[in-house]
Amino acid sequence: MSTLNSAPPRVPDAPEEAPATTPAGGKANARGRFGAKFTPYSLLVPSIVVLGVVIGWPLINLIIMSFQKFGRAQVFGAPPEWIGFGNYAKVLGDPTFWEVLGRSLLFCLVCVVITMVLGTLIAMMMTRLTKFFRLLLSVGLLLAWAMPALTATIVWGWIFDTDYGVINNVLVNVFGLDFHQHSWLIDPVSFFFVAAIIVIWGAVPFVTFTVYAGLSQVPDEVLEAASLDGAGYLARFRLIVFPYLKSIFVVVTILQIIWDLRVFTQIYALQGIGGIKEQTSTLGVYIYQTSLGSGEYGIGGAIAVITVIILMAISLYYVRQSIKEEEL
């Protein structure tokens, strides 16, 4: 018997229509996407403006000056004379410039190699030290790194002083060598030996801390497995540690080349203490002597532009290596 009170079947609701996008809403969304896309670039505008004013504008003036005959008369208001590549031809045809460039490159090479080796060895030693001695060594490195270059040069100049220097006294009284009143800054070789000590002493902390931070990321399991397989300490460094830290070594080496190639303070201060300027000048000091010392600002500008080109070529390689590391 059928039930009369049964409820009728429920009719399914009709699907709701999607709200139509209004033209105003579409424009608002487009503006939002446009703003989100270009917000990072707009945030970079203040930094770009500051860099353009602080670095770009002086660099443009330097390039313009390098194509002009610009001396002391032009400093006091005389109009400069446009001579094109005359300054560059004079610089590139000057044997003194090539001597200074070769001397600077050789000095840079020696400092970079020794700095990288010492910094790496100290960083590897820090991984074996106890916490107390590692902290003590870190404090000493930070103090050396924080000391201004001029202050460090003056202190090292006292250490190598002809009459009262610690080095001469130790060599005479302890080792019995004939270094009584020996002048370390008269001879160019010993001059650059002292300069290299100062530059390396100030640069080793940066390399040490950077390499030590990279060493902390090398997996201990891989090193232990290599040690169980019979790999010695040098083999583990060559086959495991160096491949892990290759990008760090490349970046730090390039930065050291850039910094040591344009070194100025240490060389200039040592020359003031007693060095022979004609035989000990590097690129930075040579530019200063040509521009401010001789009043040849146009020629000094040409030398500076050539130096900038060399540094930009090295920096370009550094940027390319950084981009490759980010893509990996």
Rank of each mutant, 00 (worst) to 15 (best):
G93R: 07
V113M: 01
G56Q: 08
Y212D: 04
M116C: 04
G71H: 08
L328G: 15
S291D: 13
A203M: 00
Q181I: 06
L142R: 04
K131T: 05
V53E: 03
V100H: 01
I198H: 06
P80A: 02
A231Y: 05
K131Q: 04
T127D: 09
F264N: 00
P8Q: 13
F191M: 06
V204Q: 07
S6T: 10
I48L: 15
G284I: 11
S227G: 00
M124L: 13
T162H: 12
L44E: 07
S138E: 11
V170S: 11
A78F: 05
G300F: 12
I258N: 02
S183M: 06
L44K: 02
F132R: 07
G25N: 06
Y244D: 10
G140L: 14
I314Q: 12
P19A: 14
P148A: 14
I200D: 05
Q289C: 06
I287E: 13
P46M: 10
T210G: 04
G275Q: 01
G25Q: 12
Y164Q: 13
N5C: 01
A195S: 12
E17A: 11
E221A: 15
M65R: 12
L245R: 06
L135A: 12
S322T: 15
G165D: 09
Q217V: 02
F264R: 03
M126T: 04
W158Y: 10
R134K: 08
L261G: 03
G77Q: 07
L106G: 13
T120F: 09
T22G: 06
S294T: 11
A73T: 10
P188N: 11
F160I: 09
G35N: 02
A235I: 03
M1W: 12
P19H: 12
N168D: 14
A18L: 12
I83L: 03
T130W: 06
F85R: 03
T210F: 08
L215Y: 02
L142W: 04
A213W: 09
I314Y: 11
R134W: 09
E81P: 07
P40C: 10
V166E: 14
F107V: 00
M65E: 02
S294E: 14
P15Q: 07
W158D: 11
I198P: 08
W201K: 03
T127Q: 10
W201A: 01
W57V: 15
A123D: 04
S291L: 07
F206T: 10
V110Q: 02
S2M: 01
I154P: 08
A144I: 03
V91Y: 13
I299N: 05
T130M: 05
A269D: 00
E278V: 09
P23Q: 11
D161P: 01
H182R: 15
G84E: 02
G232Y: 07
G301V: 11
